[in-house]
Computed example of a mutant assay.
Amino acid sequence: MKNLSRNRSLLAQVGALASVGVLALGLVSCSSAEGNEGGGNAENKSELKIGSSPSLASLSLQGAIANGHFGEDGLTVEVVPNKSANDAVPQLLNGGIDIAQMDMITFLKARNEGLPIQIVAGAGEQSTDGVEGEISGAGVVANPDSDIEGALDLVGRTVGVPAIKTQTWMNIRAIVDEAGGDSSQIDFVEVPSAQTIDLVNRGQVDASTPSEPLQSSSIAQNKVKLVHSTDVPGLKGAPSSVFVASEDFVTKNPETVENFADSVYTAAAEIRDNPDLAKEIGEKQLNLKPEQLETMFVPALATDHPTAEELNMVIELAVRYEILEAAPELEGAFAAPGEEN
C-alpha cells in the first residue's frame, strides 16, 4: 500500500436536492437498520462499484483502471455511469454504489442537508486562472460569426448551461461580474450536454457550455468559437469535483478508502507528468474518436486531498450566488482525520 501525501427551460429542471435529501435520509435509515441487524458489511471490501461520468473529468479514475493501480492496491473496480450527481447521493447511502465522483456544488448541498457523505479523494481541479481566450476543461462558445467576443457580451443574451444553480452556472456569473458586467441580466436556460453545439448553430441559444472533448473538437472544426472558459479568474486549483462515500462506508472500510485514494492520485500524477497518457486512456477507456483525441484539453486532476481553504473558494461563490444559504460545516467532511485543517 503506497502512502498518501496528505491523506437550470429546454429541459425540465433537475429535482431539488432537498427532495433527494428526504429520499436519501429514508434510504440511509433503512440501510443502517438492515446493516445493524445483519452485523454490518465486511471490513475493507476489495470489490468496489464506483459512480462516475464517462468523460475526461474521470481521467484519474479511468487511469487507475487502465494502468493497474487499483489491482496493485488490492482493489477490483466496476465503474457505473451516474445519471446525475444528485442521483448518486441516495445510491451511496443505500449501498447501490460505494464511491461516487460528483461536482463540488452537489457535495456541498448534500452536506448542508445534513447527509452523511464524506470526501475520500480529490478528482478534478480548476485548470486555469480564467484568462480571456484560454481554453480549459469546459467553456462558453458561440457561433463563429456571432458578435459575442468576450464575457461581457453575454449580458442580455441566452446562455445554455447543464442546469441552473450548478457550478458552471455559478462560474459564468462570477466571470461576467468580475469583468464588470451584470450577470443577473443573462438569460440562462438548461440544455442537454450533447446538444450544446447544435442549439448554438441553430440559433436557439446565443451561447452554450460544452465540456471536453466536444468543446475543443467543435472549435477545431469551426462549428463554434471560444468566448471564455468556465474557469473563474484567480481560482486555479480550486476543487471542481471529488470522490465521495457515505460515512458508514468510510468507517467500515478505512484501508479501502485509503487505497482507492492512493490509486487515483497515482494515476493523476502520471497524467500530469505525461499528458499523452490522457489520450491513451481517452481512447481505450472512454472510446474517444481520433479527432477528439487530437484536440482534447487535458484537465487538471487532483493529486492530493483538497484542503478546507480550497473548498472555501467554491463555498464563497456558492453563498454569494445563493446556491447555498450558508457555508456548510466542514468538520467531518473529509474521510481522513485532520484533513479539514
Rank of each mutant, 00 (worst) to 15 (best):
M1Q: 09
K2V: 12
N3A: 14
R8T: 12
S9R: 12
Q13T: 10
V14A: 09
G15D: 11
A16T: 13
A16P: 12
A16V: 11
L17K: 00
L17W: 01
S19E: 13
S19K: 13
V20A: 14
V22H: 07
V22F: 07
L25H: 11
S29M: 13
S31A: 13
S32H: 14
A33S: 12
E34H: 08
G35F: 01
G35T: 07
G40C: 06
G40H: 04
E43K: 15
L48S: 11
G51N: 02
A57Q: 12
L59S: 05
A64K: 04
N67V: 02
G71W: 05
G74S: 11
V77L: 01
K83H: 11
A88T: 13
P90R: 02
P90Y: 03
G95A: 08
G95D: 05
A100M: 09
Q101K: 08
M104V: 15
K109S: 07
R111I: 15
E113G: 00
V120Y: 01
G122T: 06
A123W: 00
D129Y: 03
D129I: 03
G130P: 10
E132D: 09
G139P: 09
A142Q: 01
D145M: 09
D147P: 12
G150P: 06
A151E: 08
D153Y: 05
D153M: 10
L154Q: 05
V155G: 01
V161A: 03
P162M: 12
K165P: 00
T166E: 14
Q167T: 15
T168H: 04
W169E: 02
M170R: 10
R173V: 04
D177R: 06
G180S: 13
G180W: 13
G180N: 12
I186S: 06
D187T: 15
F188M: 07
F188W: 06
V189S: 02
P192K: 14
I197Q: 04
R202M: 10
R202E: 14
G203R: 06
G203K: 05
V205R: 00
D206H: 07
S208D: 11
S211M: 05
Q215A: 04
S216C: 09
S216L: 10
S218C: 08
Q221M: 13
N222M: 10
K223L: 15
L226G: 04
V227Y: 00
D231Y: 07
P239K: 01
S246Y: 03
S246K: 01
T251E: 13
N253G: 02
P254I: 01
E255K: 07
T256F: 05
F260C: 07
Y265I: 06
T266Y: 02
A268S: 10
A269H: 04
A269E: 08
R272I: 03
P275G: 05
L277R: 08
L277V: 03
K289W: 09
K289C: 06
T295C: 02
V298E: 08
A300N: 02
P306Y: 02
T307G: 04
T307H: 01
E310K: 04
N312Y: 03
M313K: 15
V314Y: 02
A318P: 09
V319C: 14
Y321I: 07
Y321A: 07
E322W: 08
E325S: 15
A333I: 10
A335F: 00
A335N: 00
E340K: 02
